[in-house]
């Protein structure tokens, strides 16, 4: 019997070693320990064995059973490992490029706009928005730009025919015309009309001028304006904001300077120059970057704020111009051509 069992165990070892896949394994397993298996058959013979031999016999069969099970486990482990190996292809060449397109890129105007908005959010400005189609009231009248002001000329501003109707851009008066906003200051008016001060907003957005397109002019471009309305806002606060913005953008040693200027909606008004040492391609010491001033009392009156109580400042700049200065871009048209060799340089 012992010899039979040994022979069986050895035969099992040989057979299991040749098993390479799961179905063969199951078949082999059945041949030994299945209901009709050889080892099972031997165990069934136990009943015919004389009583006194049974303990020794039982021990022998048990040992063989353990041995076969170990062989089975080993075979299964080998097969499972082979199966996992089969899931792999050949080793990769990590130096091959990914065939997927991408990565995506943000437009440089978006990058500059968002950076400015982040800087301004830190000092309490929230981002406001308003329509690009505007009416004369929001774009001009409320901003102290009277009807015969040259800025309102059909030569410089895009107008819509009197018949044009814009369902979600309400007019202030029936006679006023629709136009494409020439600055984002109209958002200031809409924001002030919406609620009482204090107000601290930044309004980036697309604006339109009736102009020849060339390296520095574009029929539409983008502006970013800040408006702060509160009690006791001063020129010094305005200067502090500008210093803060450009130090954040270009480094602590960046300076700004104010040159007195004229805008209808601010008094006093200034043009803002930026010390240009950190800007590529700029050969001058100072470069003009935007306009600003203290909100003119007539603007407050137009939106129903008491000019005796409320004060404020406003600052505006062109986003294309800022991006051109920051990156050293020479031609404004590149922003609108979207050559991928251009777009991919900024992300």
């Amino acid at each position: 019997m012992q010899a039979t069992l040994n022979a069986l165990a050895e035969k099992a070892a040989t057979e299991f070693a040749a098993v390479m896949a799961r179905p063969e394994f199951e078949a082999a397993k059945a041949r030994y320990v299945g209901p009709n298996g050889e080892l099972t058959a031997l165990m069934k013979q136990m009943g015919t064995v004389p009583k006194e031999q049974r303990p020794a016999m039982g021990k022998l069969i048990n040992e063989t059973k353990v041995r076969v099970q170990a062989l089975l486990d080993a075979a299964l482990e080998r097969i499972a490992a082979a199966e996992l190996r089969a899931q792999l292809g050949p080793a990769v060449d990590p130096t091959l490029p990914s065939p997927d397109v991408g990565p995506g890129t943000y437009h440089p105007l978006t990058l500059v706009r968002e950076e400015m908005c982040r800087i301004l959010r830190k000092v309490g400005f929230t981002v406001a928005d308003g329509p690009e189609v505007e009416t004369e009231f929001y774009c001009f009248d409320a901003l102290n730009t009277p009807a015969d002001h040259p800025a309102r000329d059909a030569q410089d501003t895009f107008y819509f025919p009197e018949s044009a109707r814009f369902g979600n851009v309400p007019k202030k008066t029936a006679e006023e015309k629709y136009l494409l906003r020439t600055h984002t200051s109209s958002v200031q008016i809409r924001t002030m009309l919406k609620g009482p001060p204090p107000i601290r907003i930044v309004s980036p957005g697309r604006v339109y001028r009736r102009d020849t397109t060339d390296a520095t002019h574009s029929a539409n471009f983008h502006q970013l304006e800040c408006l702060y309305v509160d009690r006791n806002v001063t020129v010094r606060d305005l200067k502090a904001l500008l210093d803060y913005i450009f130090a954040s953008l270009l480094g602590k040693d960046t300076k700004t300077r104010f040159r007195p200027h004229y805008f209808g909606y601010t008094e006093p008004s200034f043009e803002v120059d930026l010390s240009a040492q950190h800007l590529p391609k700029v050969k001058k010491d100072w470069i003009e970057i935007g306009g600003c001033g203290m909100v003119d009392p007539t603007v407050f009156s137009a939106v129903g704020y008491d000019p005796e109580v409320w004060t404020g400042y406003a600052f505006g700049m062109g986003l294309e111009r800022l991006a051109m200065l920051l990156y050293g871009i020479d031609d404004i048209r590149y922003f609108y051509q979207n050559d991928l060799r251009f777009l991919k340089q900024f992300a």
């Binding site: 309490g124 929230t126 406001a128 200067k239 502090a240 803060y244 006093p268």
Partner: peptide
């Protein structure tokens, strides 16, 4: 105010720190 500041010199506006009382508003 502007006339006085022009002649006084805008370059002499003293530096200051931005004071920003939170207005607890969200972007549009």
């Amino acid at each position: 105010v502007e006339e006085v500041l022009r002649i006084y010199g805008t370059e002499r506006i003293p530096a200051a720190v931005v004071t920003a009382p939170g207005l607890a508003a969200e972007d549009d």
